[in-house]
Amino acid sequence: MKVKASVKFIITLTGCIGVLLYLGNAYLQRDDTDLPMQRHYFNYRQRPLNSQQNSLNSKMRPLNSQQGPLNSQQGPQNSQQGPQNSQQRPQNSQQGPLLTLFTTWTTTPERYDVYNNTLRNWPSLQPSINIIVFTNDVIPDKYKLLGWTIRPVKHQVNGHPVLKYMFLEAMEIQPMSKLYGFSNGDLLFTNSLIKTLHAVVNSPMLVNNTLMLVGQRMNTPDVSKEDAGSWKNITEASKRGTLMKNTLGIDYFITTPDYHWKYIPEVQVGQKLYDNWLVFDARRTGSDVIDVTRTLLAVHQDAPYPKHHGKMNHNRDLITENPRLLYNRGVVACSNLRTIKDGQNVRFKRPKLPRHCFG
């Protein structure tokens, strides 16, 4: 009886191993067909560690030495490493801003009030956040006095700015920033942005990870100058808004300095698919994509766009993936981490992703 039981156990175990090997091979084959740019990125990431580190040293900056809300056991000089990661970002004694945040726009009469609200709102985030606008329009000097850095758009296709070059230039303008981000010019923020980012840069579980932060916007009608005048008023105005679905477009992207912007195609903002493709690309290249919607209020000022907005499909020449694939996998709902409120603090949760994120 013991011999028969042993034989039965061995047969069952062998069958289970065979099934697992088959499923693993099928999963790898499916991923290979979906990653046409994988080889280029992975060749870069597989270079010798010293060579790769040297190429990133000018962009990778220290984490904030201040204690964050989740790091009650962390000393003022954090020497902890993230789980299963022995590589640390190089340390530097100088302190830079928490975030360098930039936007871009072409002014039209329909958007005057929107952009003026933004020009008044973003300076309230200083000194934690450095602010830049890339535009070929004339910005009044009074806004420069509020702390705005004004730069011309140097790289554009058919009038649409190329995102990667603005990220790279922002890194040159403020090389000490801990994070870099792009936002559409019609978003208003409160101190919830600062609190969320402090939690991110001070989290031991994220200390060495390459990150992309995204989130849903709050579509809010009739945002007045008074509404945009303070964080309290913005929060109150958002209560009449509607949260955009987490399977639709994305209006802001915040990344760590080591993000591979240099290798991103020349996708243009204000065009279709670039936002979904960026999230899709971040996921397939191993970055942590964090949904910060639950702790970061981003108020979208609903206002009409110009009637003649131009063609919206220029990015299709650069993006080879099927749009349906990007609309399924390149959305906020597919973020592998999310921030949530825990009293006055911010903590992280790993959600169960919907099936469309893999299909």
Rank of each mutant, 00 (worst) to 15 (best):
M1N: 10
V7R: 04
V7E: 00
I11N: 04
Y22N: 01
Y27N: 01
L28E: 08
Q29W: 10
Q29C: 08
T33R: 13
D34K: 15
P36W: 05
R39Y: 11
H40R: 13
Q46Y: 13
Q53E: 12
S58F: 09
K59H: 14
K59D: 11
M60H: 02
R61D: 02
L63K: 12
S65V: 03
S65W: 06
Q67R: 14
G68S: 01
Q74E: 03
G75Y: 00
S79W: 01
Q80V: 00
Q80L: 01
G82P: 01
G82I: 01
P83F: 10
P83N: 03
Q87L: 10
Q88E: 02
R89N: 02
P90M: 01
Q91D: 00
Q95C: 02
P97C: 00
L99Y: 02
T100A: 01
Y112H: 06
Y112N: 05
R120L: 14
I131G: 08
I132D: 05
F134C: 04
T135Y: 07
T135K: 07
D137S: 14
K142L: 11
L146Q: 14
G147C: 10
G147R: 10
R151D: 13
R151F: 09
Q156R: 13
V157A: 06
H160F: 15
Y165H: 12
Q174L: 03
S183M: 01
N184W: 06
G185Q: 11
L187G: 03
L188M: 10
N191W: 06
T196L: 08
L197K: 13
H198P: 05
V200I: 15
P204Y: 09
N208W: 08
V214C: 14
V214W: 09
G215E: 13
M218F: 07
P221C: 08
S224K: 01
K232R: 06
N233E: 12
I234T: 07
E236K: 14
E236A: 13
R240L: 01
L243E: 01
L243Q: 04
G249K: 06
I250H: 07
I250P: 07
T255Y: 10
P257D: 00
Y259S: 08
I264P: 09
P265W: 05
E266Q: 15
L273M: 15
L278F: 10
T285F: 11
D288R: 14
D288W: 12
V289G: 13
A298V: 08
H300E: 03
P304A: 04
P306S: 07
K307M: 03
K307Q: 06
K307E: 13
R316H: 14
D317M: 05
R324Q: 05
R324P: 03
L325T: 15
L326E: 03
R329H: 08
V331N: 08
A333H: 10
C334I: 06
T339G: 11
T339V: 13
V346H: 10
V346R: 08
L353R: 11
C357E: 12
F358G: 10
